[in-house]
């Protein structure tokens, strides 16, 4: 990918430098100020058009991007399309070019196939934001998680962060690993071996199958959503057994530091990967993550436009 296109897109945390991450998080602080006011909207990107091009259903992420775009005074369009270009007459690229021809300055893409944002970025003049591609990355989730961690813990350097659950299928885990490693955190993964192959060690993280051991002395407990459709595919025998071993209960949380924060990208499976009293407990920052998602996504859109001007 040429330099120019790396500049104006957000494809993954893999591609971002530590400096750029910090810049985005600082911007997000300013936007969070805006979100605290009665008038939660600024005219910054007035006249620009943002398109949510979602090939995979997602109400939460789409709504967050939509509201973030509106808070920046852009015009925002939601465009949902079936996931496979084979099923649909029109090809993926044609769909994206059509959306661009509507005048889109920023196209936010979610797709069930890894690499789709990268492929479209090569062909589009508009900025591309990856809102989740297959099992590859979900960069804005990692940014909002980093933002939330810094808000609670002041800094990331030297923090012990555990990411727990269905690692192998998780783009959230992957983006978070890239991001947190760049920010100097000590990252460990916990999950059943079927959902956490040992080659993940090559990402520079520690790998645990035993939850109690993995949680020892942890500052941040990041739970992942267990994809229930994985059940019956020999990854684990039953959700009951899964919860016994890798579910986050109050008792289990005692292994982590007393002031550990509990995070979850949502939507949660209560009683499967996380107990209700933990999700709603004092350590939980799950709802703050949602608020911070808006600020971070505003920062990302602002930043991409900022880079276009240079």
């Amino acid at each position: 990918m040429d330099d120019n296109s790396r500049k104006k897109h957000l494809l993954g945390m893999k591609e971002l430098s530590r400096e750029e991450i910090m810049h985005l998080l600082n911007l997000a602080t300013s936007f969070k100020d805006v979100l605290r006011r009665d008038i939660k909207k600024v005219p910054t990107l007035r006249g620009r058009t943002v398109v949510n091009l979602f090939f995979e259903p997602s109400t939460r992420t789409r709504t967050s991007f939509e509201l973030a775009a509106k808070r920046l005074s852009t015009d925002v369009i939601n465009f949902s399309a079936p996931s496979s270009s084979i099923l649909k007459g029109e090809s993926l690229l044609d769909t994206a070019l059509t959306v661009e021809a509507l005048g889109a300055d920023i196209i936010i893409i979610r797709h069930s196939s890894s690499g789709v944002p990268h492929m479209l970025a090569r062909h589009l003049k508009a900025s591309v934001i990856n809102a989740g591609d297959g099992t590859n990355e979900h960069p804005t989730q990692a940014l909002l998680d980093a933002f939330t961690i810094i808000e609670k813990k002041q800094e990331t350097s030297g923090l012990r962060v555990a990411i727990i659950g269905d690692i192998i299928h998780s783009r959230v885990a992957k983006s978070n690993i890239y991001c947190l490693k760049k920010l100097g955190a000590d990252v460990r993964l916990i999950g059943p071996a079927t959902l956490l192959p040992s080659c993940w060690k090559e990402m520079g993280v520690e790998v645990f199958t035993d939850m109690d051991e993995g949680l020892k002395g942890v500052d941040v407990v990041m739970m992942l959503r267990l994809q229930l459709e994985r059940q019956g595919k020999a990854f684990f025998p039953s959700t009951e057994e899964y919860f016994r071993q890798w579910g986050l209960s109050k008792r289990r949380l005692l292994s982590a530091k007393p002031d550990a924060i509990v995070m979850h990208p949502g939507p949660m499976n209560r009683g499967i990967e996380i107990a209700s009293d933990v999700a709603d407990g004092n350590n939980s920052v799950i709802l703050e993550q949602v608020t911070n998602g808006l600020a971070v996504r505003m920062a990302v859109m602002y930043h991409l436009e900022e880079k276009k001007e240079l």
């Binding site: 496979s84 270009s85 084979i86 090809s91 993926l92 690229l93 797709h111 069930s112 196939s113 890894s114 690499g115 789709v116 492929m119 062909h123 297959g134």
Partner: peptide
């Protein structure tokens, strides 16, 4: 070329 500009998976 149309087939090869599909998403990598397909």
């Amino acid at each position: 070329p149309e087939e090869k500009t599909r998403e990598f998976d397909s």
